[in-house]
Design a protein around this nucleic acid. Structure first.
Lengths: 224, 224
DNA sequence: TAGTGGTCTAGACCACGCC
DNA sequence: GCGTGGTCTAGACCACTAG
């Protein structure tokens, strides 16, 4: 297999620190390098990534240590997937192809006046508890006819996030009445709507999502 | 001066792409390496960081390009400083040293029953427009007697964030009546309270902040 | 003084895109 | 076949910490 060596070292390090207490020192870069028959630069790269993720941290001139699990890096939406995956189910409430309706969607998706777009509303549940309502918007021209017949692939947002750039805006509001029931909330309760725009690296927007989170069921949290 | 070469290269790259349109290709790593008399690995490191920040992006086997400014990486709180700095002013509303009061503070700051803590409430304004109210909590034992006489240094959170780890939780709520006036909001308006915990790399919590943002004056946004 | 992480070099080979 | 970014090597020197 062609897996890069630094990734193998990374896994090996992850294994070796598993169950270790926070602030336990790991071997020095030179020791690991000799032990795993790799150059020091390659070992450094593996450690570098684990430091980025908050799994290890370095103290200059002293050593490298196991990080506190509480402080592992997290980001929302991605966190949503990570926390659940298997436990998450989607129920489609509504789905249509529209033109010339919501103004803000045209701006976000950088569409022209008459462009069509797909709008899907779905209820997201984790362990059968409804946690949010998502309104997903995608420009029709970005979906192949094939994909239109199998929307599951189109609506799997993980894939886009991986290779794209995610921008999120957090808006406080009163839960929309039409969603209060779905989320099993009382009317007049405050919620956060997260507006997520996923773009390609060249800046072209791809998908826009408005997520209405039930704050009692889903903690919105980041660590970085 | 002892500034690392890769940082100098980074600055040089930033200069050379200034004003360039998105998706413009930059020189290849080998060209830059020859041009600046540096090894390719050093050039790569400089580019790597700019890619992390969203300022450049790479296309495998093709080249490296200028990124879209809209997609430069942003994170809240840090964003707050970045966007303003000079324009931001703080007015202290309240300040005291307390014991045995708010339960959640003890848990967050990992204090014992009788430990004292400092509580400061301040109004944050940008360009003289009030944008948020911050409640800042710090364990008394983490503040030297000297610092107690000059709270400005203690309350400059930038410094802690730089070397620490930031965890933020987003809570929707109705604006607390005592803050509605300060923020020039009507009562019953929904807001987001951001709970920020800044910890050392070894996991020891240092400062906890509850920020009440006026959503009409301050957009809470992340890009990553 | 010995050991650590931080920086840097001058090569090398690879897979892949484009012509 | 040429150029690109991605990976990797086997050294090197530095500043700093700790015994």
């Amino acid at each position: 297999m062609g897996k890069p060596k630094y990734l193998i070292i990374k896994e090996s390090l992850l294994e070796s620190i598993e169950g270790q207490e926070a602030n336990t020192p790991i071997q020095s870069e030179r020791e690991i390098s000799a032990h795993l028959n790799a150059s020091r630069m390659t070992v450094r790269r593996a450690i570098e990534e684990l430091v980025e993720e908050g799994i290890l941290y370095r103290d200059k001139n002293k050593g490298t240590y196991v990080g506190d699990k509480k402080l592992h890096k997290k980001t929302p939406l991605l966190l949503l997937e990570e926390a659940s995956k298997e436990d998450t189910t989607y129920n489609i409430i509504y789905f249509d192809v529209k033109t010339r309706d919501e103004e803000d969607i045209y701006e976000k998706l950088n569409m022209r006046f008459d462009d069509q777009y797909l709008r899907v509303v779905r209820l997201v549940s984790e362990k059968e508890i409804p946690t949010s309502v998502e309104e997903v918007y995608i420009a029709r021209k970005n979906i192949s006819d094939e994909d239109m017949r199998n929307l599951d692939t189109v609506l799997n947002l993980d894939h886009y996030i991986e290779q794209g750039i995610l921008n999120q805006v957090f808006n406080p509001m009163i839960v929309p009445t039409q969603y209060a029931n779905l989320l099993k909330m009382k009317i007049n309760e405050p919620i956060i709507r997260v507006d997520s725009l996923i773009s390609q690296k060249d800046g072209r927007p791809f998908v826009f999502v408005k997520s209405y989170y039930n704050p009692n069921k889903k903690k919105i949290e980041i660590t970085l």
